[in-house]
């Protein structure tokens, strides 16, 4: 499944249109703890979080995360979007709470092993 499929299926709002949205999504991760993502997320995963701090971009880049979905209508800070665009990390937002969004990602077949 490609990131663009998720965007369409879950009506995600893309905050970084210039980034690569055609990447293959290999799984999902949900966490607001940067250290947890660094330790446990895998390359190609899409990361669901309420965290909007600038550092999420560096963590995503480090782990090869294919995209970040911010939940609960969280608005990413301008610096976060700029950095994400520069590092080619797609940032998307959803009005859903993390539980609901993950439930839908799971129903679409994404897993976290």
């Amino acid at each position: 499944m490609k990131l663009s499929d998720l965007i369409e299926n879950l009506s995600l709002e893309v905050k970084t249109p210039e980034t690569d949205l055609t990447r293959e999504v290999t799984g999902g991760y949900v966490s607001d703890m940067l250290s947890d993502v660094i330790a446990n997320a895998k390359a190609g995963y899409v990361w669901v979080t309420f965290q909007s701090h600038l550092n999420i971009v560096a963590v995503a880049s480090l782990k090869g995360i294919c995209g970040i979905i911010m939940v609960n209508n969280r608005v990413p800070a301008r610096e976060t979007i700029l950095k994400a665009a520069a590092e080619n990390i797609p940032i998307m937002t959803s009005s859903l709470a993390a539980f609901e969004l993950v439930g839908k990602l799971y129903a679409l077949g994404l897993r976290c092993r």
């Binding site: 799984g27 949900v30 539980f99 993950v102 799971y106």
Partner: peptide, 15 residues
């Protein structure tokens, strides 16, 4: 956390 949410959602729990 992803699997936990996914499985509970699959079984009918909602947000």
């Amino acid at each position: 956390m992803f699997e936990t949410c996914g499985r509970l959602y699959e079984n009918g729990l909602r947000s």
